[in-house]
Amino acid sequence: MTIRTAIIGFGTGGRFFHAPLLAAEPRFTVSAIVTGDPARAAAASGYAGADILPDAEAVFARDDLDLVVITSPHATHAPLARRAVAAGIAVVVDKPLGISSTEARSVVEEAEAAGVPLTVFHNRRWDGDFLTLRDTLASGELGEVRQFESAFEKWAPHLAARWKDVATPGQGGGILFDLGPHLIDQALLLFGDVVGVHAELDRRRAGAVADDDVFLSLTHASGVRSRLWMNATSPADRPRFRVVGSRAVFTSHGLDPQEPHAKAGLRPLDPGFGVHDDGRTALLSAPGTERAVPLLPGEHLAFYRMLGDALTEGGPLPVDPREAVRGLEIIEAARGRG
Rank of each mutant, 00 (worst) to 15 (best):
R4I: 04
V293D: 02
S72G: 11
P235V: 03
P26V: 13
G327I: 00
V249P: 00
G314H: 05
S222C: 15
G172D: 07
V68P: 06
R105F: 00
S226G: 07
V209R: 06
D212Y: 02
D94C: 03
R203K: 14
A44R: 04
V325H: 01
D178Y: 11
R305E: 11
F177M: 13
G254K: 07
F17G: 05
G315I: 08
E299A: 15
G13M: 10
Q147T: 15
W163L: 14
L307I: 10
H158V: 14
L218E: 05
D37G: 08
T281C: 13
P316I: 12
G36C: 06
V91I: 00
K95N: 02
A75P: 02
P54C: 13
H198I: 10
R162D: 15
T136P: 08
L142F: 03
V166D: 11
H158P: 03
P20S: 09
R291T: 10
R162T: 15
L189C: 09
D202T: 08
I331D: 01
M1P: 15
S101G: 04
E329V: 07
A44K: 05
G49N: 05
P20C: 04
F177G: 07
S246Y: 13
V93P: 02
D211F: 13
P257N: 09
D277N: 03
R225M: 12
A324R: 02
S252T: 14
E57S: 11
D212A: 13
T136L: 12
G36Y: 13
G272P: 04
G172P: 06
G338M: 04
S222E: 06
E323P: 03
E200L: 14
F16E: 04
V68N: 06
E200S: 12
L142T: 07
D66L: 15
V325N: 00
E109Q: 13
